[in-house]
């Protein structure tokens, strides 16, 4: 430990403070500025490390093939080449995969919103026997990872003839325990008086749901929507299993695997495909950051 020099003064115990009331204010701004600089340095290094993989991917996807092996790697595409994107789009069937992903995601998001709203409404507003038990059943789904149900689910899909169909791709995900929980909580926030006022104003259950409950639950709906979008778009295991043969309903994530696997020589094309696949979600992140954070932390703040 250093001797009691003035430079270590600020870090010493608080008991000393009153003894030197005049010295602290003089030293503080410098210290503070130093700390601020340290904080920004740390933040910037962190940001660079976090961003680097994606940034390099974007840059590489825009480089001409000859520049790809250049070392040090170019950090800015001075002469951006869009050719790889065109190739990924047409030869890699990325256009089809994107469309499939969009359809799959839309079905799952809408389905989850609808089933969660309905069940959440029932759990929040209606009285029926075994309501609590049923709610526990809903929450219990959170304890069973999808991977654990894979064995039988593949058989079920096969028996239903749902391989390579949007039904097979989406139906298992049309309900969500988290979503139901989220909407139930949001509905429970609505004061009882509002329901009763609406009842007296002549609004039945359905109209109350549409005109009062849903508008008031908008933040929860948005959070759930963004969350399902993210989860659905990024699904990998299940789409891989059910879209095994043929491009019919193959999603963009599986398309990426194929870009990587079958055209090893075309790294640049694979990277272009990666950028295409992640772009919609980066937009989603920037636009809906608040909703995304809300939905991802719903379990933590509970």
């Amino acid at each position: 430990m250093r001797p009691d020099s003035s430079s270590s003064f600020g870090e010493r115990g608080s008991g000393r403070r009153p003894e030197h009331p005049g010295r602290r204010p003089g030293r503080r701004p410098g210290r503070r500025r130093w700390r601020l600089a340290a904080r920004y340095t740390l933040l910037t290094i962190g940001a660079l490390v976090v961003l680097a993989p994606l940034y390099l991917t974007v840059v590489s996807s825009l480089l001409p093939p000859s520049a790809l092996a250049e070392r040090p790697p170019p950090l800015f595409p001075l002469d951006p080449q869009w050719h790889d994107y065109a190739v990924a789009w047409s030869q890699g069937d990325l256009g089809v995969y994107l469309r499939n992903s969009a359809i799959q995601t839309a079905i799952i998001v809408c389905g989850q919103l609808v089933t969660s709203v309905l069940a959440g409404y029932a759990f929040a507003f209606l009285r029926f026997p075994f309501k609590r038990a049923l709610f526990v059943v809903f929450l219990a789904t959170l304890m069973i990872p999808f991977e654990v149900t894979l064995v039988t689910n593949t058989q079920t899909i096969s028996e239903l003839g749902w391989y390579n169909t949007f039904a097979g791709l989406t139906v298992p995900f049309l309900a969500t325990g988290v979503g139901t929980f989220l909407l139930r909580q949001a509905f429970l926030q609505i004061p009882r008086d509002l329901q009763e006022a609406a009842t007296l104003d002549g609004y039945g259950r359905l109209r109350f749901l549409l005109r009062i409950a849903l508008p008031l639950a908008r933040p929860a709906l948005a959070a759930l929507g963004v969350f399902s979008f993210l989860a659905a778009w990024n699904q990998y295991l299940w789409p891989l299993v059910v879209t095994g043969s043929g491009n019919g309903v193959r999603t963009v994530q599986i398309g990426l695997k194929l870009l990587q696997g079958t055209e090893v020589s075309r790294t640049d094309v694979a990277l272009a495909g990666t950028v295409i696949a992640v772009l919609p979600l980066l937009v989603l992140l920037v636009v809906f950051q608040k909703q995304l954070v809300r939905s991802l932390t719903a379990g933590a703040v509970k």
């Binding site: 990998y236 994530q253 990277l271 990666t274 992640v278 992140l285």
Partner: peptide, 16 residues
């Protein structure tokens, strides 16, 4: 920036 990787899929991270 720090939240950004939450939107990347396993396929994207694997390719990158």
């Amino acid at each position: 920036i720090f939240s950004s990787t939450v939107v990347t899929s396993v396929a994207v991270s694997a390719l990158v």
